[in-house]
Design a protein around this nucleic acid. Structure first.
Lengths: 204, 204
DNA sequence: GTCTATATAACGATAGAC
DNA sequence: GTCTATCGTTATATAGAC
């Protein structure tokens, strides 16, 4: 139940975020969203016309939170190590508030890529020229190995995001509750920038 | 259509693996599985009684492929660097044959943790004593920083597994087809062991 | 705007002929 | 073992009263 919000439209949207992000599009039920929002089932259709339309609103919002953050930082003017630091900081903060977000976004793309095609297309052929140049400059200075933007993005994001992806499994296997998990992630946040840059350390 | 297999029961199971792993339990349709197998819808129930039972067979198989592999290696007797090398090798090989496996397993756990609770419980309170001891010995030798089994597992697995998790998104955003992706992963495989151990490199 | 009642469609599962 | 036809349930969506 969500009672802090005043108007029904917002209550529904907020409940939809929770339910869709936990269950995915096909696993979510309109009735569960209605119950979570504490409103009548029929009102979801009154405000959003269909499950599909309600979902799109939730998904597009989530997608643009998951992706553009990092793009803006990495395409900016900071030195490389500061970009890493900033990405770790911004992402960790966002993910701790929204642990299911990566799984939600990535799973919907896997499950129904065509439905989301247009959204992905707006990001297609993304270039990271500034970043690419920085990686090359650091390589010439001898501070990192020769690498690609792809490899850099994957190492950076995997070390930041993966814990939130496996959290539902890990927390059960190792008895880590939500509070404990947050503590671990805050500790990890401090260690992460060094770990990330080390993955590009030159041999000897 | 799958015609290499002779008997219907196997055709269905094979098709179920494909469809469940792409769409998840709630997104999968019995009819799609039947069509993929090239058999009649009613035969799925004839052989497996229900969607739920067919799913469990597929999931448990996938889960035991995703998890125990790494446990056996990490609880074995190899030196630390060889454990990393072996894990990278075994996992990469398995994942290249089965790109959707991590997302499938992890998403079902998120979407319906109680349904899978028993399975997770069999792995509960997993201990990695041997590994823990090794990490401590390496720390005393000064070859790595002080760390925990959790952190070690997360760094190791994130750098190995994450690319397969984001592949459906990345491939569309950067025009990476399946062949190109496999090439990238085979290259990455060579670089990975060093990258992983470097995340634990002592400061200076 | 919000409710109850109901239409409509999708899907899993079964009966029964062959 | 395999098919067609159909039942029963569940979920989305709408109609219409208040």
């Amino acid at each position: 139940m969500i009672n802090q919000l005043d108007n029904t439209e917002d209550k529904v949207l907020h409940a939809a975020r929770i339910v869709f992000q936990k269950k995915g599009y096909s696993g979510a039920r309109m009735e569960e969203i209605a119950n979570t929002a504490g409103v009548n089932k029929a009102l979801l259709n009154y405000y959003y016309r269909s499950k599909e339309k309600l979902f799109r609103q939730v998904f597009e919002e989530a997608f643009s939170e998951f992706i553009p953050t990092v793009i803006n930082i990495l395409n900016g003017d900071l030195p490389l190590d500061m970009k890493i630091y900033r990405t770790v900081d911004v992402y960790t903060r966002m993910l701790l508030k929204n642990k299911d977000l990566p799984m939600f976004v990535l799973n919907e793309i896997r499950e129904n890529p065509n439905k989301i095609e247009e959204l992905l297309m707006t990001k297609k052929h993304l270039t990271f020229q500034k970043l690419e140049q920085q990686l090359y400059e650091e390589y010439e200075k001898g501070t990192i190995v020769e690498t690609t933007v792809h490899t850099f993005l994957i190492n950076l994001l995997s070390l930041i995001v993966y814990p939130y992806i496996v959290q539902p499994m890990m927390s059960r296997m190792f008895d880590i509750d939500d509070k404990k998990f947050e503590e671990l992630m805050l500790e990890r946040k401090n260690a992460l920038p060094a770990m990330i840059i080390e993955t590009f350390r030159p041999k000897n």
